[in-house]
Amino acid sequence: MAKIHVTATVNGDEVEFLCELEETLLDVLRDELHLTGSKEGCASGDCGACSVMLDGRLVCACLVLGVEMEGRSVETIEAMAAGDELHPLQQKFLEHAALQCGICTPGILVAAKALLEKKPDPTETEVRFWLAGNLCRCTGYDKIIRAVLDAAAEMRVS
């Protein structure tokens, strides 16, 4: 079966890949590029575990076709830490124990980072509604919300 050749930017690097038309960006990231930090929880845009930044916008990678990526740029959880330096959100998630099983964590971190870039001083309610597209079944969200608010406070200071 003929695959389609696509050139895109992934975490700052130009990459080429072949994909079948029915493959999503999530399939490409995971199965072709082996960037498995983005998770599949639903493949229907309902759980947010595959959240990535596509040309600066937060999307579910499961709702983007691989072929749509031609000439576009995606950032995944794998690009969140700067070298040895964790992003403040990553650090706060660790300090607040804001993860249990950790499967939703990459998507929530990517989504939370997008929020803080747009709104550095969100209220609890704003964080909750922004993260409504990211399901977590373990934590009841409490520690996640606290970690995001704490990271926001720290990022405003620094």
């Binding site: 845009g45 947010g48 937060l58 579910c60 709702l63 989504a111 997008a114 929020l115 409504a132 597209g133």
Partner: peptide, 9 residues
């Protein structure tokens, strides 16, 4: 319509 993620699309 949907989440922030959905809104982007």
């Amino acid at each position: 319509i949907g989440s922030v993620q959905i809104q982007s699309r």
